[in-house]
Design a protein around this nucleic acid. Structure first.
Lengths: 331, 331
DNA sequence: TTGAAAGCGCTAACAC
DNA sequence: GTGTTAGCGCTTTCAA
């Protein structure tokens, strides 16, 4: 019924060991025999059993990736990149969604039961528990876009301070003096760093922000801040939103009120979500180097798994400003 | 180094079988011994090896789910629902992204190497290859939101004809007579069904559509259609877009041209994406019952795995119209 | 270059 | 209730 390596061996007139060798691309198999084995496999429609291989080899051939949300084109880009790259390295990617961090079972099954050879933690709200557990279990892992700095842990992040700085600098260079910032949630290091960069750029020009408004990385929060300003009858000429969703919400409210962008007010977002370039006006934003992040993360993880790198590696990549239609000199 | 069931048995002063029993919640273990085992496990920080269990049991305890895109809140809702429900059934969910259907390795590793006990195929562009392979390998699976009808295959779909019909009916009931439709890609059954429903509703009123425009389920395509209309200087009073992205693109173009929604033109979308209710005007749309779909899919799959249902089950759920701000009677 | 034998860590009979 | 004995399907020594 179930065809095993034994059936193949019998059909090919060779031993299971030889079959196993061709399965693992061992070079010590006579070409003629290799063909015989391959032929037998095909005829029997044989497929090796992953559990048995994992048990015998002590490794699974899969890399796990824990993600919180999937509705984010920037994160999606990272996932897609990682998926392809891992395949090139002979690994499969198994995604696990964990909306509530450390939730019972969420992703932790990958860790606890040795179902993966390595793990990638993507933009976790709180990566702490994973870090603790993974270190204890000695499973290689890399944090991507993590919140905190963990000693002796490999990670790939983006310089959010620089991103915030460049966003503000862009507005300043265009001539804006009245510049506001809608923040991200304060428990995100990325959010506070962007704000720090923003403030630094203003400070260098001796500028004070028009205002700093709390936001939540959501369309709704951007919309509401603008509504508030509108009600007060006072607007900045430039706005740096902590992420594209916030920016889009702000733009939405602004245009609904009959204001023109960038004529009446310039808006710059962050992340370069797909939406940013799909909706008009196309949003000026700070792009996260998603592809490069995925590449680096896989690189570091592979080296760690292969024992090339014993020490942890911390990479901080640079964001890139993408100037589109939502920013211009103030009128 | 690695602590195994043997170590636990030794420490607890019992046999491995007993340990195995508490691992599997067998009721035939004296409470006192169960505690001893539990205690030993804790002290040794023991965690069972998934590969060994899978090999011995002949099942893995994981359900695979193949997804194409992750940037879709409707699909995301299904995934989240499924994830939680499976956990309740004692299974883990492993997601596999397959942008290019049947791409080498994409998801197929789950199938080929018996890494899962069952599979959920979510909104595949072309599920055919999966169906063939899964049937051959006799792995239980359920298609969700599939394109074609496959004989003897379980699936959970939504009645797109009805959705299209209701969308059109809504506009008609509001008093619209000049109604256009922006289609989805013709190779999606969902798209053509929505159009059929739309046409049926119009036909019942003796109405001809203002026009039928090709679209691609993208913001861009909705935007461009409206641009074309604008250039021609002729607009319908009501528009049914094949999905929310298309609708949002259309709304975007309309408002950019200074038109008001729903005053000048009513727009209804499809899917009830998160965006639909986040952007203003909040979009009237046809909601897919994502939670119910996830629930049904898990239900059917579990029954199939447990041998309760030998025959295939085909469920077609009803969509629901969500009336918001983007539709109103024509002026 | 090939094969026999001994596990990998766990569970499924079957006895006790 | 509990333990003994065989495997699950594959890879890994070690010989030949």
């Amino acid at each position: 019924m179930k065809v095993s390596i034994f059936d193949v061996a019998k059909k090919a007139g060779l031993s299971v060991v030889t079959v196993s060798r061709v399965l693992n691309n061992a070079s010590t198999v006579r070409e003629k025999n290799r063909q015989k084995v391959l032929q037998a496999m095909k005829e029997l429609d044989y497929h090796p059993n992953a559990a048995a291989r994992s048990l015998a080899k002590g490794k699974t051939g899969v890399i796990g990736m824990i993600v919180t949300t999937l509705q984010d084109s920037y994160l999606d880009n990272i996932v897609q990149t990682v998926s392809v790259l891992l395949r090139d390295h002979g690994y499969y990617l198994a995604l696990s969604v964990a909306n509530h961090p450390l939730e019972e079972g969420a992703g932790s099954y990958l860790i606890q039961e040795d179902r993966v050879d390595g793990l990638l933690i993507l933009a976790a709200v709180d990566e702490e528990p994973y870090v603790m557990e993974l270190k204890k279990r000695k499973i290689p892992f890399v944090l991507i876009d993590n919140q905190k700095n963990h000693p002796a842990v490999s990670s790939v992040t983006v310089d959010n301070f620089k991103g915030g700085y460049e966003a503000a600098k862009h507005l300043i260079d265009l001539g804006h003096r009245s510049i506001a910032h809608i923040q991200g949630p304060p428990y995100f290091l990325s959010a506070t760093e962007r704000e720090r960069g923003f403030m630094q750029a203003l400070k260098e020009e001796g500028l004070e922000p028009f205002s700093l408004e709390p936001g939540e990385f959501t369309i709704q929060s951007g919309y509401e801040v603008v509504q508030k300003w509108l009600a007060q009858g006072d607007l900045p000429t430039g706005l740096f939103a902590a992420d594209d969703f916030t920016a889009i919400g702000a733009v939405n409210a602004l245009r609904q009120a009959g204001l023109r962008i960038p004529d009446d007010i310039s808006v710059i977002g962050y992340d370069d979500q797909a939406l940013a370039s799909e909706l008009r006006p196309r949003l000026t934003t700070i792009r996260q180097p998603a592809v490069q992040m995925g590449k680096m993360a896989v690189d570091v993880l592979m080296k760690q798994i292969n024992g090339v790198n014993k020490r942890s590696t911390t990479l901080k990549l640079n964001p890139e400003i993408i100037v589109r239609e939502s920013t211009a000199p103030p009128q």
